[in-house]
Each structure stands twice: as C-alpha cells, then as structure tokens.
C-alpha cells in the first residue's frame, strides 16, 4: 500500500470483510484526515458497525489492510460498550481505567460533558444517556486523534440527540480530534460533517453532505429522506437567511 499523505490519520484501500460465506464489506476505500468529521449512513445490516470495528482494530479485515498514522490513538465507543456489571465501577474509577489522570483534567472533561455531579456515582446505576457520556468522557481523556462512535444517539430522544451533536462539535473544537460517526439522524449529523459515506456493503457514494444528498445512490438508499431532501437541507443551509417566527418566539 502507498504511504499516506501527511494529514491522513487512517486509510483503507479495497478492504473487504467476510464472515464465513457472507460478504459484509466489499471494496471499501476511504481515508480520514486530521480533525475531519466523517459520517457513515446506511440501512440496517449494511455493515456499518463491522466497518467501524475493522477501523478500530477490533476485527481484522479479510481483504486489504487498514493503514494507521504512526502512534494513532483511537477512542472507540461501540454500541454495546460498558455494560458488564460483574465489574464494580464508579465513574471516577472508569475514567482512571485510561491511566492516571489529574483531578483537574477529569473535572474539565466531566464538565464539558455536563456530568461533573456523577463522578462518585456507581456506573451501573446510570441512565442510558449518562452511560454514553461517561464512556465518551473516558475516551476524550485519553486524548485520542480519532473518535469512532457507533450510533451514540441510539437511546436518546430528539432533544438529547441535538444536544449530543452540539457536544461533539465542542469536543472537536477543544480536543481537535477527528470523529467518525455512524448515525441514522441523517440531517442532524450531516450538516456538521466534512464527509458523508453511504454504505450498503460497499460504498455507494461519498463526498460533501451537499453533494451526497443529490447523488442518485443516496436517493436509492434513503428514498424518503432524499425526497424531503430539498426542505431538510434548507434547515441547516439557510438558517441565517431569514427568521423562523415560530421557532424564535414569534408565535407568542
């Protein structure tokens, strides 16, 4: 494989993954550069989680290889992570699982995630959203170059999701890490992405969010979302062009 451009954190070329006879991923080529937010979209069973696992190094690829920048630090938040309650664990002890951290570093990260009150709580009694935040807090404390997040908003309500994406933007700003995220929240997440990948065992299309929504493969994968596309793109593209009276208190 060729050497990577200097800014590239991780790259795959013609990567494939089979489980027995079943081909889950085929001809996957893409790369993530420093500080990029990359979103993966795709229907259920498209191989999104498997792709993330291969990139995170949890599962080896069957074909091709994953090239990582030297010393690349990955923070990986899987869908089922952190629920072995056989291990007694407080939030503080969880944060210390990533090595010795100073009290002030911990406080800073906890505050950013708005869970500073939970530091002495039993991890196993946290709610779904708190669990995500505690795990994410541990990830960012390690100072990763790349955060890999597998449907982190799955158990959150709509407000919670918007909050979460805002949080990601702040994390990126403060810690400077690249973010790879799988999400079904097409439009919420797309507007913040530098690159969007549509996956259905192979990469159907990839590019900037604006161009993706006009791509015929996107329409094929997400007919409903694509049909609404024009309107929904508007939600993020024109939000400084005019005021929405109902949203901004005009309806009072």
């Amino acid at each position: 494989m060729k050497t990577m451009p200097k800014d590239t954190l991780i790259a795959v070329e013609n990567m494939g993954k089979r489980f027995g006879e079943k081909v889950v991923l085929k001809d996957i080529s893409f790369s993530i550069a420093k500080g990029e937010i990359v979103t993966i979209l795709g229907p259920n069973g498209a191989g999104k989680s498997t792709l993330l696992k291969v990139l995170a190094g949890v599962v080896p690829p069957s074909v091709g290889e994953v090239v990582r920048a030297e010393g690349l630090k990955i923070g990986y938040l899987s869908q089922g992570s952190g629920r072995n309650d056989a291990v007694p664990m407080t939030v503080k002890r969880l944060l210390l699982l990533s090595g010795n951290k100073s009290e002030s570093d911990m406080q800073k990260a906890l505050k950013l995630l708005k869970i500073e009150g939970l530091i002495n709580e039993d991890f196993h009694t946290l709610s779904g959203g708190q669990v995500q935040r505690a795990l994410l807090c541990r990830c960012i404390l390690r100072g990763p170059d790349l955060l890999i997040l597998d449907e982190p908003t799955l158990n959150l309500d709509f407000e919670g999701r918007i909050d979460f994406y805002r949080l990601l933007a702040r994390i990126k700003k403060i810690y400077g890490c690249a973010i790879l995220i799988v999400s079904h929240d097409l439009h919420l997440v797309m507007s913040k992405s530098d690159k969007v990948l549509c996956l259905n065992h192979h990469i159907c299309c990839q590019g900037k969010p604006e161009s993706i929504q006009k791509h015929p493969s996107y329409a094929k994968l997400f007919p409903y979302a694509a049909a609404k596309g024009e309107q929904d793109v508007g939600v993020y593209m024109h939000h400084h062009n005019h005021k929405h009276p109902l949203c901004e208190g005009g309806g009072k």
Binding site: A56, G57, V58, Y76, N84, L97, L135
Partner: peptide, 20 residues
C-alpha cells in the same frame, strides 16, 4: 490489572485501544 479490568468491562474498547 488495569488492562484486564478494561478488557473484562468492555472487551471491544480494550482491543481498540490496546490492540488485539
């Protein structure tokens, strides 16, 4: 100890962070 705790707590995270 610490790495095995992480592994028991969350196997995939341990493998992603430390390598399989």
């Amino acid at each position: 100890w610490n790495k095995m705790l992480l592994f028991a707590f969350d196997r995939e995270t341990a493998e992603a962070e430390e390598g399989r």
